[in-house]
């Protein structure tokens, strides 16, 4: 009993800093943000309550928020599928025993360590180089260039990271099951679909969640690669929110409302995805 009591004490001591930090840097700003989204303000001290009018504007902002929402969704759908399929394929290959797997894992993981802004500018140079060669134009010429540019950039950056998670999942599968199935005459295709994929359900959940929320929240890659050009057609949600908040006089409240809608949206999507993929996980 004495021991348990002591344990509880330490629990509080060691989690308190973290909880406090969470409270100060997440919870309070979030609540303030909720309030500010219902006001018109410039500096926080001078906020004036205006009810839901900011939200009304947001849902009628066809050329801003809603266009960004459509574009972000398009990027997200393609990028999430592409990144996960390729990462899983690489993980399958690199979880086999052969020379150099560690080297390849490291190499594939490395792009993830470079910051989004730098990656954005590097890929802008690369893609512009190709586009100028091929068509004599740059990435700002057509929204499709920017769209695929963002997807390529994001895939290149994140595949290695997700690959590591998938490798961990695959390696956790007991060799006994695979061996048994092989003895029973399962082909490697059957092994993949009947054993490996169901057993890495946890990794799939995590990876889908990470890539889905990541693509929705993408900002720096977007900013550096296209900056929204041409004519805001490649502006993603986060950038639209930033621009509304900071670059438009008198629009801080609307920017805040957009941010709240955005948070709810990402939260709901994330939860929905977790709920669905959890169902398919094999409970061992």
């Amino acid at each position: 009993m004495q021991k348990l009591y002591a344990k509880k004490k330490y629990f509080i001591i060691f989690t308190l800093p973290c909880l406090l930090a969470y409270f100060i840097s997440f919870f309070i700003p979030f609540v303030m943000g909720l309030y500010l989204s219902l006001t018109k303000f410039k500096t926080i001290r001078g906020a004036r309550f205006v009810g839901l009018s900011n939200y009304k504007f947001v849902f009628r902002d066809f050329k801003g928020f809603l266009q960004a929402l459509v574009f972000t969704s398009k990027v997200s759908i393609v990028a999430v599928i592409l990144v996960n399929v390729i990462a899983f394929a690489l993980a399958l290959i690199l979880s086999k025993q052969f020379r150099g797997t560690n080297l390849f894992r490291t190499l594939f993981f490395m792009p993830n360590l470079i910051g989004g802004i730098i990656l954005g500018y590097i890929w802008q140079l690369l893609l512009n180089g190709i586009l100028i060669r091929l068509y004599g134009v740059d990435i700002t010429y057509d929204a499709r260039f920017g769209y695929w540019g963002i997807i390529i950039l994001y895939s290149w950056q994140k595949i290695g990271y997700l690959m590591i998670i998938y490798i961990a999942g695959i390696q956790a599968i007991s060799g006994d099951i695979l061996e048994a199935s092989a003895i029973d005459g399962a082909s490697s295709w059957q092994q993949l679909w009947r054993i490996i994929i169901p057993n890495v359900g946890g990794s799939i959940t995590v990876c889908l969640f990470l890539s889905l929320t990541d693509t929705f929240k993408m900002y720096d890659q977007n900013l550096a690669l296209t900056g929204g050009a041409p004519a805001n057609q490649t502006k993603m949600l986060a950038m639209d929110i930033y621009d509304t908040y900071y670059n438009r006089v008198g629009f801080a409240g609307i920017g805040q409302a957009k941010a709240v809608v955005f948070t709810v949206l990402v939260f709901a999507l994330g939860m929905l995805q977790l709920f669905i993929t959890r169902k398919f996980e094999v409970k061992s």
Binding site: V137, T140, Y141, A229, P230, A231, N247, R248, V249
Partner: peptide, 20 residues
């Protein structure tokens, strides 16, 4: 009237220059 006007006019000019 606003920065927004300038930005949008600027991207319009770019599209004009590109023949878009």
């Amino acid at each position: 009237p606003s920065e927004k006007w300038k930005e949008d006019f600027g991207s319009s000019l770019l599209q004009y220059a590109q023949g878009q």
